[in-house]
Simulated assay, not measured.
Amino acid sequence: MASQALPVRGARLGKRVTPGLSPAAWRETDGEAVRAAVLLLPGGRASSTRRRSPVAAAAMVPLALRMVRAAGRGEGLAVHVVHYRFRGWNGGNDHPAEDARWAVDEVVRRYGDVPVSLVGMDMGARAALRAAGHPAVTCAVAIAPWLPDAHEPEPVKQLIGRHVLIVHGTNDDSTDPGLSYRLAERVKKVNRDVCRFEVHTAGHQLRDHREEVAALASDFVLGNLLGRSFARPVADALAAPPPLGLRMPLASGFGRSLRAR
């Protein structure tokens, strides 16, 4: 039986996120030179050739706005949500990871040789880790990563030389926090610049801790891209040996002083 051909469509970048504007009014540029870029990779499904999920993409917007506001004007930070070709990972096709690599190439084409951070949730977190080997990528953030317990372990060599942050709720029954811990252990053996935070009692959506997770991700990304000092818990987690630096608890209220920005 002949295999069904995949729909022909391309990945694309969402418009550059700008604070204070409605999504329909986001502009590609506001006149400032871009010094660094963040690509946000939404969640998805294990297998699906349907178009990308607008709901999953919309879920990344609060995180995008948090990063832009925390960076402030004049810092030249460009933040985009990546819109995949397909909703699913689709086995060995690794479609979201391919789309993430394309998106980094597109950022370099638009803005020049700027450092890039990949930030993903769920399936997008796996894509961020997979695509982090791109030469322009300096750091990757994986929030509640979907990591199937497959026969072949996830690759880690592409993460050498990158800063890596993994965040997972301890009560996540959709993606296994045990798998993300074991992955973090393997990454730590080849790359000391990795840390993992646990959100105690939180499920997959991290509903009661979204502000803290967004603040943590912003602190990590802006520290890497803009040369800012890391918050004390992040610096401690990066410096601590396993298992301490890979089971760092995310404190309630983390980043509260930044919320007014």
Rank of each mutant, 00 (worst) to 15 (best):
A5G: 05
R9Q: 05
A11G: 08
L13T: 14
K15T: 13
P19S: 05
W26R: 11
G31K: 14
R35Q: 09
R35I: 09
A37N: 03
G43M: 06
R45H: 08
T49Q: 12
R51W: 08
R52H: 13
P54A: 03
P54C: 04
A58E: 03
A59L: 09
M60R: 05
V61H: 02
R69G: 07
A71C: 08
G72P: 03
E75D: 01
G76K: 02
L77C: 04
V81Q: 01
V82T: 08
R85H: 09
G88P: 06
N93C: 01
D105M: 05
V108F: 01
R110F: 07
D113G: 02
L118Q: 09
G120I: 15
M121P: 07
G124Y: 15
R126Q: 15
V141Y: 14
V141P: 15
I143E: 07
W146P: 10
H151F: 10
V156G: 02
K157I: 00
G161Y: 15
I166A: 01
H168P: 02
T170P: 05
S174L: 09
G178Y: 12
L179N: 12
S180E: 11
R182S: 13
V190S: 11
R196I: 12
H200A: 00
Q205W: 01
E212P: 09
A215T: 11
L216T: 14
S218F: 03
S218W: 04
F220G: 01
G227R: 07
G227C: 10
R228D: 09
A240N: 04
A240D: 06
M248S: 13
L250G: 13
G255Y: 14
R256Q: 12
R256F: 10
R259P: 10
